[in-house]
Structure formats: C-alpha cells, structure tokens
Design a binder for these strands. Structure first.
Lengths: 213, 213
DNA sequence: TTTCGAACAGAACATATGTGCCGGGCAGGC
DNA sequence: GCCTGCCCGGCACATATGTTCTGTTCGAAA
C-alpha cells in the first residue's frame, strides 16, 4: 500500500483529492500545510517535488495553486461535461420532446458524462428511455441513451426521429425504403412504422447507452 | 443564445471552460484578461461579478484562482473518479482475472466515471465483457460493467464470482440452492453451473453497465 | 441638454503564495 | 568520530494575484 510513498506524501495526496473535490480548485502550499499539519511550507514543497517526480501530480512553476492530480497511470484526470437530459422518450407510445434547440436553459436537467462517453462530441444530449420497444437492441426501460445531434443518418442506425404530423419523437432504427422511411422498433413483438420522408426529421444518433442497476 | 449575457461575458465563460480543460486549475484574473483581450483587470472583475450574480460561476474571495464553473443549473460540476479496469471477463468461456487486490498499480488501465455512475461508492472496479453469455440481461459483447467489490450478495444479483477449483472468474446471476450454488448465465442457450459454496468467492456486484455504439 | 447608470481604463495597493536559503536532527557507512 | 544524504523547521523575499479607487465613455431616459 505504501507504493514507496512516505506517510506524509500519502496524506498530501489524500488531502489534494479531498480539497479539489470540495472546492473544485487546487489548494495552495499553505492550504496543504495546515490541512496536513505540516510545520513548514518548505516541507510541503519538498514533498510535492517528490510526488511530481513519481508522476502522481503535475505542477506549473510560479503559478499559484497550479497542481494537477494525475491518475494512477500518470494520465490527466478529466472533468465532466454537462449533457442536457431533454426528457423521457417512450418508444412504445411516443411522447413529444423538444426539438434540437440546444440553447442553455431550454431543458431543466443535466447529467454529467466523461469525454470518454461523449467521444469528445459537443452536440450531445441525453434521453431517458421509457418502455421496452428497444429491448432487442439491449436498451431497457429506465436506461439513459446519449445521442449526437444530427439531421442525417445511415440505414440501420439507431436514431431519435421527430414525426411532424404526429408531433412526437421516437427512438427507432432507421431505413430508407424507396419513397418511404421504415422506422423499426427493436422489439420482436412490435411492428415497424412506415411514413413519408417529409414527415420524419432525424434529431440524433444514439452513441452510448447507460444502465444503472 | 445570449442568455442575457454580453458577448464579453460569454467569451469569459468559454475561456474558463477551455482553460480549465487544458490546465485543470482555474485561471487568474490576468490570465482571463489576456486570454480574452481585455484591457484591464477591473473589467474582468466586473464581469466575473456579473457571472457570479447570475449563477454561472462561484468565487471564493481573497483566494487566487478560486473560480468554480457551474452547470447551466447552478450545480457544481463534478470531477471524475478513476476506476480500475481489471481486464476482460468472458462469461461464455471464463478467463481468469486477478482477485480483488485493489492496490494501485496492480492493474494497467483505468476508466473515468462520474460519481453519478459510481453512486459515490469507492470500492469500485470495471470489467470489459467478452462474449454473449449475459445477453438476456441486456449486456453484450464489448460492454463495460462496473462492479462494487463485495464478498456477499443476495439471490438473483448479478455478480462476478471466482471459482477456486477452476481458478477463473465469471459473470453470472447468483442463487443459493441448498448446499449448492447455482450460477445462471443470462443466455437462454446456456445452462447453469452448479458448484459447492466453498468453491465460489463473490468478487463484486454489477452496479452499472455502459455500452458505446 | 442634462443626468444617470452600465461598462470600461489604468494604476496603485494589500495580500496570497511559491521559492530559496540556512540550519538542525538523524540514520547509515567508513 | 566524521561525513553524507534525506527530511524537516523557520523565515525572508520576490512576485503572482485579487481588490479598490478614480476617471472616462457612451447611450438611454428625463
């Protein structure tokens, strides 16, 4: 458990973690000093240098509070990006959701996702799935699907489409079939929807699914 | 799009976002000044006060670089927690994974998850699923499952169990049946495994599943 | 026109904060 | 003992950095 770190260094590391979790900005040398009951700033500086040598943190010299916590593998920790949760989407019996006007404040809930999960995309939103119409695509009632906002898609992609006439949004697999569009629920017990191309507007393509048990 | 914010204020907000993403610590007033081509620190201060009034940021007075970015709803943004990715788990034909020695450095990969996804739990690890033996539980080949390290579980829970005799770990639903344990794959085409209680050691309970498309 | 407040410029000021220097205790090797 | 390197205490110092004060500009309202 020691990792070759002194007790004091482990304490500092823990303090960094806690301080950043609480304040969202790094502590100053003197914050660490008092937080870890260390008697001198030079001792803190000394140990920070050791931690930096071993790749636990990264520091920018001459800059206040310029301490970055690194992961156990020396990579930078990532912040999260707020993703608007635009509402529920019940593919079984579709309910309306707002179109892709992604202006801040147009929604009333956000979830936090890592950049790993958004793939670095910025035009991202999330929906909570109601119902089991996508069950064969391994998406269940209560799951959260993350979508990339787009107006076009290829056949077979799982997309959120807005049906103009019905004024509702639904989650389906998308297929061009001549003049028509086939919207295929991923549930063997449910039949596809056929409609005019002019009636469907693609709102987003599913990129990630998350389920909490 | 204006949100009642001046162009300069939006610029500052964007700069904060970018600076923090790059450095992992907040900028100083003068960093903002130069980054946004603003002529005076007092102008930055003035606009930061406006942003704070409107709930876009939070500041600690008298402390350098003490600027927190808030979500569009005024909540604090969360950092991520590094979760060790202990390896692949192929429930179809189980492969060994290391036991629950969660000492840093005992694994060689981590993923970043939000506290929403870990539920605030700290004894957390992740596995990448290989194979389709959990397909009926909506967990597919390539999915990542997040587990809470535990040695006990209730009937019906989805757990990672280590089979001592076979020296392998597998992902199954867990059932006590008298003297024996039944480990049920979540795939209708696969039969359950029966074994002595002494042969199974529960390593973790699945709490979240994540799939990237 | 005058008034007034929002937004901005520029500079001085106070303090927050990282760094360097000097010295001391302490264990290990010769 | 004596030296050497590691770790720590204490403190001064330079500067990084937030705050504040005094004006200025500009546009809308009276």
């Amino acid at each position: 458990m020691t990792d070759g770190l002194s007790e004091k260094q482990q304490g500092i590391l823990q303090f960094l973690e806690d301080f950043i979790a609480e304040h969202d900005y790094p502590p100053s040398i003197r914050d660490i000093q008092h937080g870890c009951d260390i008697s001198s700033t030079s001792v803190v500086d000394y140990n920070l240098k050791r931690l930096e040598e071993r790749g636990f943190i990264r520091r920018d010299r001459e800059v206040s509070r310029a301490i970055e916590l690194l992961t156990p593998h020396g990579e930078r920790r990532r912040r999260t990006v707020p993703v608007p949760l635009l509402g529920k989407i019940a593919a079984g019996s579709p309910i309306p959701t707002p179109p892709d006007t992604l202006t801040p404040g147009a929604y009333d809930e956000t979830i936090e996702l890592t950049e790993e999960q958004t793939g670095g995309r910025t035009n991202i939103f999330a929906l909570r799935v109601e119902g089991t119409s996508m069950i064969d695509a391994l998406i269940n009632d209560g799951d959260i699907v993350v979508l990339e906002a787009t107006h076009s898609c290829d056949d077979g992609e799982m997309v959120a489409v807005w049906l103009r006439d019905e004024n509702e949004t639904t989650l389906k697999k998308f297929f061009h079939e001549g003049e028509r569009i086939r919207l295929q629920p991923m549930n063997a017990t449910m039949g596809p929807i056929y409609t005019r191309a002019a009636n469907v507007e693609v709102q987003g393509r599913v990129v990630t699914a998350i389920r909490s048990l």
